[in-house]
Nucleic acid binder design. Structure first.
Lengths: 367, 367
DNA sequence: TATCTTGCATAGACCGGTCTACGTTCGCGA
DNA sequence: TCGCGAACGTAGACCGGTCTATGCAAGATA
């Protein structure tokens, strides 16, 4: 057994010596900088290949760029967030930049820590997916590093942003349910830690829910369970709603994840979907399309959002200083989890199983 | 509107000047190094707080440590992998280290690129989840950086490893199906790019499937669809299996994800589960427990595996040179997706809905 | 021919930390 | 009183890149 003896990495000086040129020349070749003859370029490239040289990001970061984009997300397992990252990574493969993902957790304290970790690592740009920290903090970070905030409605000249129009999306769901004949519609929202921020996406969805209820004269039927957007949150929220005096005939969950929890709770309570209760989600996660779930939900293309985010971030890094704000118009996807209450007027829409898998980049419908 | 004017970060020199001491002293305080008086420690700490100083990882990396653990995974959206990361992150919060995740993709070429990206960034340790690259490559990386390989059976003195015992897990599934009375059991496996590696986990599951079939005298009934472990792969695999002359009465999918695709394909074909076909998966993903899915599967605790991985990596970084190999014994979780063929002898196991959510760190069963 | 530009190549400062080598002070035993 | 080691503190090299300032040669211009 040979001793491990971590061998030293090949450095730019090694390459320079091997090619018989200066460090600066090698650096220029690597960065495709101006002022290098064709002959020199060839020589250096050969030396790089022969020695298997790769520049060290830490050293580059100190002076220039780290060629790294940091992605801050609550948890990497959240399906919709994973879709966004798919788009981002796709976009970045064309460039020299690499995306690194980092866990922010569910508290703004842990998120702050993660954010610090990214800035400490000198990333060139940050993509924040539905961050929890306050706007002031965001702007402070954005002053140091090009930043793009995804999924929050508070615009700022300091950073770019991409949001799905949660008002429209929520309206689509609500109008759909009301058109089916529902009146007792309940909602499950995400309870922020300390004082909900008015510009956070969960708040807008909840707000829109209430407004539409009032607009249709169902103000008395408003019922909100404030738990979380996770499956667990949906489960708890649904149980709470079911325990109240008048049972809702439909539940609009703020996210697909939460809707899954709702389905579980209903199943446990022996209630059928959509017979006894209709259920709708938000995000059109891959699972919503599964025939065993067949969830009516709001579609916002995470992959496209991720790609756009990547493009905007690269632009910022290249020097753009004016802020850009994108708003994505969502659409409703009706599946079997919603129907008229009490089974009357069963508007059986033809079942659509739209698979959205990592192996199938193009979304395709069967039958 | 104020000009952005990216302001300069506070450096160690600023702190030193502010506290009236040397850079070296500040450095010592930060690293809890030996040879600092209590008075000095206090002064420096106060200066750090007053200036809001945070050391820059890139600069530290150049000389010492980057305090970063890199996690290489095919895709961050794979539920089981996300669980592993949960455990890892949990373990690392106690330390000064930060986990960064990176997409490897499904080709060993893109994976190699991602791996390079991690080494370029001078991470102190690497966790590779079910990597695709060859053993030689792994050992080469491990010679440079402390490495832990998760989910592969090829041990090496160069790196630590954690695996679930896929032989036992696959046997559990097969014996369960056979005990129920199944004979025509099919399997869906993951087709490696170029020449399957005998030590890869999909190969072991497939191999065990075939062995158990032979051992029970069902060699003629062996039917394998080689697609992928994704939902899409399961869907394609199931369609292929169903199109063959004799339809299987049970399908053992190599992963829960694939099992979801199988369920979708069966639904589309108008076949009931478990009435017409029983389905089993592997990993006990959170979704397998959902009552609408209720998948019989193999449980391996990803969170615990991730925690262990973190511990072992930190040990390595601290200097351990001997390799450690962990093997986890999996267990079977029986749910409603498996039953005796043709509905005879319906062994209706009481339904268990075990939620495994991010909000619910403790796994709890209802009813 | 003298001067100016342009293209190419290099030396060396620099980024922000860590770490080694060394200096100073203090306490204690001979 | 001297010698010595332990405790504490600092100067400055160093890590591996980037970038600025500068030198030099060849061709263009006056």
């Amino acid at each position: 057994m040979v001793a491990p003896a971590r061998r030293r990495r090949v450095t730019i000086s090694d390459v320079a010596k091997h090619a018989g040129v200066s460090k600066a020349a090698v650096s220029k070749v690597i960065r495709n900088d101006y002022g290098v003859s064709e002959a020199m370029r060839e020589r250096v490239k050969r030396a790089i290949d022969e020695l298997g040289y790769r520049p060290q990001a830490a050293a580059r970061a100190l002076r220039g760029r780290a060629f790294t984009i940091g992605v801050l997300m609550r948890h990497i397992g959240i399906p919709f967030y994973a879709e966004i990252v798919t788009g981002l990574v796709e976009q970045l493969t064309e460039s020299d930049y690499q995306a690194i993902m980092i866990h922010g957790g569910t508290h703004d304290k842990t998120e702050k820590r993660a954010l610090d970790a990214l800035t400490d690592r000198q990333v060139d740009g940050i993509l924040m997916i539905a961050p929890l920290v306050g706007r002031t903090q965001l702007e402070q970070v954005a002053r140091e590093i090009p930043t793009l905030v995804l999924g929050r409605h508070d615009r700022s000249p300091a950073y770019d942003s991409i949001v799905d129009d949660d008002r429209i999306g929520s309206e689509l769901v609500m109008e759909h349910l009301i058109a089916l004949g529902h009146r007792r519609i309940a909602h499950i929202t995400f309870q922020q830690e300390h004082g909900r921020l008015a510009d956070q996406m969960p708040h807008i969805r909840a707000e829109t829910y209430e407004r539409v209820m009032r607009d249709h004269g169902f103000a008395d039927e408003v019922a909100v369970a404030a738990t979380s957007y996770s499956e667990e949150g949906g489960y708890r929220g649904a149980r709470e709603l079911l325990s109240r005096s008048s049972r809702p005939t439909a539940i609009f969950a703020g996210s697909d994840e939460a809707a899954l929890g709702v389905l579980a709770a209903l199943h446990e309570a022996g209630l059928s979907v959509p017979g006894d209760v209709s259920v709708a989600g938000y995000d059109n996660t891959r699972l919503a399309a599964h025939p065993h779930i067949a969830l009516t939900t709001v579609n916002q293309d995470g992959v496209v959002m991720g790609r756009t985010a990547g493009r905007l971030l690269l632009e910022r890094i290249e020097g753009r200083t004016s802020a850009v704000h994108f708003s994505v118009i969502p659409s409703l996807v009706v599946r079997r989890s919603t129907a008229s209450p009490r089974g009357t007027e069963d508007c059986a829409a033809p079942h659509i199983y739209a698979r959205k898998g990592h192996d199938a980049p193009t979304q395709s419908d069967h039958q």
